[in-house]
Amino acid sequence: MTRFNRHGVWAIYRFEVNRFGRTVWTSLATPVITTALYFIVFGSAIGSRMGELDGVDYGAFIVPGLIMLTMFTESIFNASFGIYMPKWAGTIYELLSAPVSAFETVLAYVGAAATKSVIIGLIIFATAHLFVDVTVEHPVLMLLFLVMIAVTFCLFGFILGIWAKSFEQLQVIPMLVVMPLTFLGGAFYSIDMLPEPWRTATLFNPIVYLISGFRWTFFGEGDVSIGVSLAAMAGFLALCLAVIWWMFRTGYRLKS
């Protein structure tokens, strides 16, 4: 019998969404307030002294980067926490003994975390409208990109949650790797503004391609072509899926 365990997937998905529901104010108010602060500081205070970038007003230019910045960290944080907590509290025994396949487990946990990320991304997008005029040239692609980013980084977070042995390890990657890479990845500027060799060095930062691609869906302009961005994201997605497949196959840090 290899029937899909939809009740199981639904149970985990609902459990995770309820978990977010318990902290709905901090979950949703934090990104809104953070975004507002960025707009006040970067958009108004600094942005008023900057000209247009790629023909776009600076305030609007930073919107895609801001959405990405929050979505990267939120996705990793939520998905890693979702699987780390049962490991930490010991309740993972139930998941391991349940008739739930690896695919179903990932679908439920990552699906729930990605749902939250997409909602946060859309809230930031809506908040941005309070401060600046933003128009989206390719709305369908923009939504698609948003969902893809959420899913990919939630998968990455899920891997992190399985790998982490302590709360510190859980925090270290988003804070010390993803956050700096995002700041340096052109969230708030065009990488063409950087002098050489920094501009070339930045091309080794994978985040550049993601932010650039997302910005392209807004303004039709990016630091690199949209094709390269999509390829980079597909590559990252494939890498995460491969790692997860390996983790479940070997029982890595889940089973002895």
Binding site: N5, H7, A11, N18, R19, E94, V100
Partner: peptide, 16 residues
């Protein structure tokens, strides 16, 4: 953080 009802209901779903 779950209620008794929710956690027991969750288990039933998890087991399909």
């Amino acid at each position: 953080f779950e209620t008794v009802w929710a956690t027991v209901t969750f288990s039933r779903g998890l087991f399909g």
